[in-house]
C-alpha cells in the first residue's frame, strides 16, 4: 500500500485519473454546481406547473394522480442510487479509487431519504385509491427492505473510524446486497401471492401523454436534484478528509515538539 502511494505521483496521469483525482474533482466540480442549480430549479418549476395546472385528472383516481408526479421519481431514485452505489463499490474494490469511496459514502443517506419519501408518498397515494396506507404488496415490501439496507449501510459507515478500510468493507456488503435484491424481490412476490391474491392492479394503467409529460419532467428534475446534492456532498466529504489530514498533521507536529522538550 505504501509503495503504491510513493509511486503514484511519478506515474503519468491519463485523462481519467486527472478527472477522478479528488483534488481535481474539487476544482472542476465547482463549475458544475451553478448550472445544476439552475437546471434543477427550472425543471422543478416547469414540472410542478405541469403537475398542478396543466395535467388532467385521472378518470379513475381523480386528482390523487398528482401524487404520482412525486412518488414515481422518488421511487426511481431509490433504486437508481443503490445501483450507483454498487457501481461505485466496484470502483472502490477493484481500482481502490478514493473518489468511488466518497461517492459511495455520501450516496447512502441521500438514497435512504429518497426511499423514505417514496414510501411516504406511496402510503398517502394508497389511502385514497386503495383504501389503505400500507399493504404488504411485493413492491412496497421490497422498497421497505431497501430502506432497511440503506440504513444498515449508513450505520456501518458510521461505526468505522478508519474511513479507508470502511469503504472496502461497505463495498463488499453493498455488492452482496445488489446480488441479493432480485432474490428478495422474487421471494417477496412469491410470499405475497401465497398470502392473498393482489387486489391492486390499478398501477398497470397505460398513460396518456398529458400525464407522462409532467411525470418525465419531474423524473428529470428529481434526478438533477440528486446529482446536485450528490456532487455537493462529495465536495463536502473531500474537504472534510482534507481538513482531517491537516488536523492529524498538526497534532503529530505538536506532540512531536512536546516530546523533544
Amino acid at each position: 500500500m505504501n509503495k503504491i502511494k510513493q509511486i503514484a505521483p511519478v506515474k503519468k496521469m491519463n485523462w481519467f485519473d486527472k478527472i477522478a483525482h479528488p483534488g481535481q474533482f474539487l476544482i472542476w466540480s465547482r463549475y458544475l454546481i451553478l448550472p445544476l442549480i439552475i437546471i434543477t430549479i427550472t425543471t422543478f418549476i416547469i414540472g410542478l406547473w405541469y403537475a398542478f395546472f396543466n395535467s388532467p385528472e385521472d378518470y379513475q383516481m381523480g386528482n390523487t394522480v398528482r401524487i404520482m408526479y412525486i412518488h414515481v421519481p422518488t421511487a426511481w431514485l431509490s433504486q437508481f442510487i443503490y445501483v450507483m452505489m454498487a457501481i461505485s463499490s466496484i470502483g472502490s474494490l477493484v481500482w481502490r479509487h478514493p473518489l468511488a469511496d466518497v461517492a459511495m459514502k455520501v450516496a447512502a443517506p441521500l438514497g435512504a431519504t429518497f426511499t423514505a419519501m417514496a414510501l411516504f408518498t406511496g402510503a398517502l397515494w394508497g389511502r385514497p385509491t386503495w383504501g389503505t396506507y400500507w399493504e404488504w404488496d411485493g413492491r412496497m415490501t421490497s422498497t421497505l427492505i431497501l430502506l432497511l439496507m440503506y440504513l444498515g449501510l449508513i450505520a456501518l459507515w458510521r461505526s468505522f473510524d478508519d474511513q479507508l478500510r470502511a469503504a472496502k468493507l461497505v463495498a463488499i456488503i453493498t455488492l452482496v446486497g445488489v446480488i441479493n435484491i432480485p432474490i428478495i424481490k422474487f421471494s417477496v412476490d412469491w410470499w405475497n401471492t401465497l398470502h392473498q391474491p393482489s387486489i391492486i392492479s390499478s398501477k398497470g394503467i397505460s398513460m396518456p401523454p398529458e400525464i407522462y409529460t409532467p411525470l418525465f419532467i419531474m423524473l428529470f428534475a428529481f434526478t438533477m436534484l440528486f446529482i446536485l446534492l450528490q456532487t455537493n456532498a462529495m465536495r463536502t466529504e473531500i474537504i472534510r478528509r482534507k481538513a482531517d489530514r491537516l488536523m492529524r498533521k498538526k497534532i503529530n507536529k505538536n506532540s512531536g515538539a512536546k516530546n523533544n522538550v
Binding site: I145, L148, M149, L151, G152, L153, A155, L156, S159, I173, V176, G177, N180, I183, I184, F186, S187, V188, W190, W191, L194
Partner: peptide, 19 residues
C-alpha cells in the same frame, strides 16, 4: 451492527423457510 446488516439480506430464507 452485523445483525442489522444481515437481516434484510436473509429475508428470503425466512419466507421460504416458513412456507
Amino acid at each position: 451492527i452485523a445483525p442489522v446488516l444481515i437481516l434484510p439480506l436473509s429475508l428470503p430464507i425466512l419466507i421460504f423457510g416458513v412456507s
